[in-house]
Design a binder for these strands. Sequence first.
DNA 1: ATAATATATGAATAAAGAATCATATGAAAG
DNA 2: CTTTCATATGATTCTTTATTCATATATTAT
Lengths: 121, 121
Amino acid sequence: MERPAHDHLDALNTVRGGMPQDELLCDLADLFKIFGDTTRMKILFSLFEAELCVHEITALLGMTQSAISHQLKVLKDAHLIDSRREGKTMIYFLADDHVRSIIGQGYEHITEEDKPHEEDL
Amino acid sequence: MERPAHDHLDALNTVRGGMPQDELLCDLADLFKIFGDTTRMKILFSLFEAELCVHEITALLGMTQSAISHQLKVLKDAHLIDSRREGKTMIYFLADDHVRSIIGQGYEHITEEDKPHEEDL
DNA sequence: ATAATATATGAATAAAGAATCATATGAAAG
DNA sequence: CTTTCATATGATTCTTTATTCATATATTAT
């Protein structure tokens, strides 16, 4: 019987060390989950360019006001965007620049992606 | 009637310029969707430390082999991980370093996050 | 060939989540 | 204080998706 090319016990121990706590992993997944929706992605990209009120976003995305409000709430609860009131209207804006850099990294992966990936259907 | 503090037409035009194509936004959302699951996040963190075979990952996460295989497929289809065969076992490993940097950005957002966020329940 | 081990996969189930509809809240104007 | 404009929210519906179960494929050993 040959020694396995791959040392199981060793690998497992190495890995357990670097693994963050379950709660942190869960929080991380929850954060990315928020970027994982086209509507929210569009909202965020919109706010990259300018502060916007709800009905502007609604018009831009061509969706119902309710759908937009629901997603704005999701984004706000995650501290990715924030809002202030201006008379009757609510102005939404990016909470901080992490949003830009997170999306930026994803953007790079998708575009740069060494291009030999047309086999994906 | 006062001029609105917020110039709607102007804002909308500014924004339409910087908005990527629908398909790209969709691809981006799909990419982040993949990070938006605890199981997949754990698999990726595991592979940060070492190349691993399926049953090692299964053991590490304490889940069924089937569940792991299904998620490995998702990750592989997205070109986030890749695999090679070594005898009977399949060894999985990170496809490139984008994975690390994308997760890294998210990690920062969660940890750095100026800390005044205990009101979230 | 057959058995044993390692992994993959299809179908079904169950749970999460996005959009819709109807309605509620909140600010300002008449 | 009633109406109007802007936004928020609860409940329901429909879709997506993660896991499980059973089974299929692939590699090696007997």
